[in-house]
Design a protein around this nucleic acid. Structure first.
Lengths: 138, 138
DNA sequence: ATAGTAGTAACTATAATGGTTACAACGGTG
DNA sequence: CACCGTTGTAACCATTATAGTTACTACTAT
């Protein structure tokens, strides 16, 4: 069963860390908290940077958020790490037989429903903010 | 990017075929419409059978639905082909550092949100029936 | 100049997928 | 009763994305 990559959960972890310990964080420290290799962290940080969520001080280290924690949603993170692209949560089999009523129609009809399904999921992602998560840490 | 397996879209295709051409279908014909290998079809049919959605006449061939098309939802199909298990749409990185405030809490807090997200998606899947799809074929 | 950090490229092991071959089991039909 | 076409499975393979790893360059404060 294919699941959505841990890149996403790691990214949320990273952002939570930065939210809590603002600025005193090296990639190696983050890697220690996430429990993975520092390069994995740097890769994800690169994506978060490109999405405009964080700022990193090269050379010396230290990261900070570019938006308030109330304004970073799980959807923002999900999109930043590119874990699922637009309308591609579900993979639909390709090149069905056009000679057949079903084969001819299934792709378009099913895909339009699946797009709705994906939207419903992403809409729910947008309702949770980073601040809601960190508020529950204890 | 990992996507949800085409097993799901193929299953919908198969059920649509049965709904339209009730009973005169061999696995090889279905494979021709889906455009894949017959064994792939049989594998999926096996899952649909186990879920109580279809009935297959062994030996001689031919399949029929065990429920009305109005009563088969995309969620039923999705669950039948076991494409995503309960609360496992998102994979969460394992064994974060318990010494760290974030590491200690992230798993539980994030997972509870992600379960909500998955529920939202599945709820939307349950709103589309097989009959709604086949009605749009032309 | 040095030390410690970030940025990347390249390689690897792992796991799920989807296609394939092969064969056994089944059930009408001649 | 034997045959033929079908279903049911097991086993294998190529492909793909992931996540970890090594190695190296570039940057910045001291």
């Amino acid at each position: 069963m294919k699941q959505i990559s841990t890149r996403f959960s790691m990214a949320v972890h990273i952002l939570s860390l930065i939210a809590v310990n603002s600025n005193e964080l090296t990639g190696d420290f983050i890697a220690g908290s996430v429990n993975t290799n520092p390069v994995v962290i740097r890769r994800i940080m690169g994506m978060l940077k490109k999405a405009g969520l964080v700022e990193v001080r090269p050379g010396v280290g230290g990261a900070s958020l570019l938006k308030a924690t109330e304004e970073i949603t799980l959807l923002d993170v999900y999109q930043a790490v590119n874990v699922i692209k637009e309308n591609q949560l579900f993979r639909v089999h390709e090149e069905p037989n056009e000679q057949c009523l079903v084969g001819r129609n299934i792709e378009l009809v099913l895909q339009s429903e699946l797009n709705e399904v994906q939207s419903a999921m992403e809409h729910r992602l947008a309702q949770t903010t980073l601040s809601q998560l960190t508020a529950r840490f204890k």
